[in-house]
């Protein structure tokens, strides 16, 4: 009952400021441009060109996967900001007055952001599939929209985006400073992790570790991404293992955040 109230409150919190739709709008446009652009490149060049050979059967899913492979930073940011803004604007004071059980407040936040992340996933896929399928069709390539494989991939992508949003909540609880959290999200997702993934693929033993990097786990869960095609075929987790790795990261970060920043004195 308390958790349901908390979730209702968190939904109101999210919807009553502009952040969610600004982030969603940028994400959809960004994902759509990338998916449409890549579809146009592959469509016009054809599969006989130099570079990695990608069959027309693989191509649609690869293009649609931009929704999560580049769009995942948006749910992470949303989740992190949902927590850090509470610290920044000292709104934890009234929140903890209304619900003194702090675990309930954080739990409601995780659930709400998980659901919101799923919505972000749907929106991002609308962007990537909308633009990607339109461009592929224009070049006479089958967008495979009737393929059950594609729809299973869509479901896994939505799950990945939901998990990324929950990871954002954990990160925000771990690093309550808003500026620091944003810097970490951007630096890690755009720079540190791609480098680590590349470096880890160079040797066999590091590749074993590399598959547990959150980005690799996410790609394993989703099933394909530009990254996995572009880099050498290394070991990869099963899709459900990838999902568990993401869920574990979210859970551990949130728990540590709860016992450090969240339970601290509010003054």
């Amino acid at each position: 009952m308390n958790l349901v109230r908390g979730i209702r409150s968190e939904i109101t919190k999210l919807l009553s400021t502009r952040l969610w739709w600004v982030l969603a709008l940028i994400m959809v446009v960004y994902v759509a441009i990338c998916a449409g652009g890549l579809a146009a490149v592959f469509g016009s060049v054809g599969s006989g060109a130099r570079g990695p050979a990608i069959s027309h059967a693989q191509l649609p899913q690869l293009i649609y996967s931009f929704a999560s492979s580049i769009g995942y930073v948006f749910p992470v940011l949303l989740g992190a900001l949902a927590v850090t803004s509470e610290f920044r604007y000292q709104s934890l004071t009234p929140a903890f007055l209304a619900q003194p059980r702090r675990g309930v407040v954080l739990g409601a936040k995780v659930v709400t952001l998980f659901l919101t992340g799923a919505v972000f996933g749907v929106l991002a896929l609308l962007g990537s599939i909308g633009a990607g399928a339109a461009v592929l069709s224009a070049f006479g390539i089958d967008p495979l929209l009737g393929d059950p494989e594609i729809w299973a991939f869509v479901g896994r992508s939505v799950l990945a985006m939901a998990l990324w949003s929950a990871i954002g909540v954990g990160l925000g609880a771990l690093v309550p400073s808003q500026v620091a959290a944003i810097v970490i999200v951007l630096a890690f997702t755009q720079f540190v992790e791609p480098l680590l993934r590349f470096a880890s693929s160079l040797t066999d033993w590091s590749a074993q570790l590399g598959q547990f990097l959150p980005g690799s786990a996410s790609d394993a869960l989703v099933g394909s991404s530009f990254f996995t095609i572009a880099s050498a075929a290394g070991p990869a987790l099963e899709w459900w293992q990838g999902g568990l790795v993401l869920a574990a990261i979210a859970a551990v970060a949130t728990l540590i955040g709860f016992f450090t920043s969240w339970r601290r004195d509010v003054s």
């Binding site: 919190k13 009553s16 400021t17 934890l92 004071t93 929140a95």
Partner: peptide
């Protein structure tokens, strides 16, 4: 004493957030 509200939220929504949490 501390102003503890998100500046981008309306007064009604600010109160609604906490009224909902408290049932």
């Amino acid at each position: 004493e501390a102003a503890s509200f998100h500046p981008g939220r309306s007064a009604r929504n600010h109160l609604a957030v906490h009224a909902q949490a408290a049932g």
